[in-house]
Design a protein around this nucleic acid. Structure first.
Lengths: 131, 131
DNA sequence: CGGCATCCGCATGGATACTG
DNA sequence: CAGTATCCATGCGGATGCCG
């Protein structure tokens, strides 16, 4: 979702903007990392890894992008063993609201989606049988 | 982003929920289609296609999923040539808020992201030169 | 511990051609 | 017009191994 080349969006004014947003922080891991950090404040690499069930590869890649985009700060302690702490920057913190709104929406509407899906699948199955 | 198998998320209570939400409506096209319909009310297949610069394939696939999940309604007029209208259901309409919040966030923060990114890249380039 | 490098399967998603 | 079917490139994302 992040690095996909896109045909230019002709119309739909703020679709363009949405498209931009999604290109930057629209992938699953970015959202989940921000959500995690927003809950726990500061987390280390492996804490995030365990928390999210993400692979090291995707975690380091996504964290680097988030740091590059100014959403996450990275603090390195050259101790032995080394220690790295990740936290939200003010910009990253501002992203909490959209994430929070999305989470609330999910809480209220996920069951409705499941119901609609089940109903749709039932109807589809009947179509098959009647054919 | 939709059909990816996921390692179970151990901690982070509402990360689980976010994960669910993202699995259903977290992909680029779903969001953009809802955004489009929320602006124009009702759109035909090719209108959406032109609007978003999406391929027929992804449009029909995504629309089917959105219909299955109860976010979008599909009305077929068996005229010649045929005519199909897509619109938001009440459930789909409820999704406008998260999308809207995200769009507003983008309006306010995209430039900051670009700036942070440029700064990060500059710093990285200097590191290369000094090496 | 906190990564990076590599390999690789598989889904995503575009382009094209064809149908009703 | 509104799709479906097929082919194919890209790259996401997981698994493994190694290094500071």
């Amino acid at each position: 979702m992040k690095g996909t080349t896109m045909a230019p969006i002709a119309q739909c004014p703020d679709c363009r903007r949405l498209n931009e947003v999604l290109s930057r922080v629209g992938d699953r891991w970015s959202v989940l990392i921000v959500a995690s950090l927003s809950q726990y404040g500061t987390l280390r690499f492996n804490e995030l890894k365990r928390n999210l069930g993400i692979s090291q590869r995707m975690l380091s890649l996504t964290l680097r992008d988030l740091e590059r985009d100014g959403l996450v700060s990275r603090t390195y302690y050259p101790t032995i063993p080394p220690k790295v702490e990740y936290a939200l920057t003010p910009l990253g913190d501002s992203f909490r609201e959209p994430v929070e709104v999305l989470a609330v929406w999910g809480l209220e509407n996920l069951k409705a989606i499941d119901a609609a899906r089940a109903q749709y699948d039932d109807a589809a199955e009947k179509d098959v049988k009647s054919a």
